[in-house]
Amino acid sequence: MASVTNRAFGSGSSWALSMAFVERQTNLWKRYWGWELVWLVYGVVNTVAITLIADQAGAVSGQDVSQFVLFLLIGTLVWAYLSAVLDDISLVVQWERWEGTIEHTLMAPVPRSLHLLGMSVFGILHGLIRTVLIFAIALLFFDIDFGNVDVLATVAVVLVGSVSVAALAILAGLLPLLYPERGAQMSMMVQASLLLISGVYYEVDVLPAWLQVFSFISPATYILDGIRGAMIEGESIVDVADTLAILALFGMIMVPMSLWAFNWAERYAKRTGKLKRMG
């Protein structure tokens, strides 16, 4: 008896528990490599097509649009990254509902925070890999001068910004716990709204004033702003410190909020029998 309980209570560091989710997602990803290819091609085509709009604008106006090209290129790449991360993490519940594994995963002795951490780590790594690949391929289509880019500032904005994006994805991902039938659709709508309000393809100034209020509270707005500053204007890490501070603040508010909300949604599902209905 003692040996059994010792094993059950003793082994397995927190990090190992989180990594179990990273490993699982990696295994799933390997099995679905065909889809990865589809997303890569889609990402490249999308990036090239939208960036070509800037070239067209240049051809029509006869002005130098090299900054506009970079502006749109960064917009599509950041959006490719954000949607990859949002897609991955926000499927945390829905995917396992499709597979039917949800109960077996949720009844394991893993604190929910470590479960969500594992899902987030994989989502961010996956998003980064995919976006870097899209970037590398898209470069073949354009002649862009990256002389101004401040790499350190860019990386800092991406990493700090990813924290609040992961939290946002968790908030979207808990919806299927509350609405088993429609939750997944609702998650997608959250993502679509983000595209509109965050200034992916334009400065948020061009939005109607009432929509700008939402831009103000979307972390994606600041991520785009920071990356554009670092890559187009060549702003250093000191110059983007304000943006980094705002993003850090978003993270500090949204991470606890998303964990609290997820736990609340899980308790709701367990009270109402919405985790799963079969068997």
Binding site: A8, N27, R31, T105, A108
Partner: peptide, 15 residues
């Protein structure tokens, strides 16, 4: 996923 990959995951989350 394979049987082993499934078992790896479902047992790793038990530490």
């Amino acid at each position: 996923m394979s049987a082993l990959e499934n078992l790896l995951f479902f047992a790793r989350i038990y530490g």
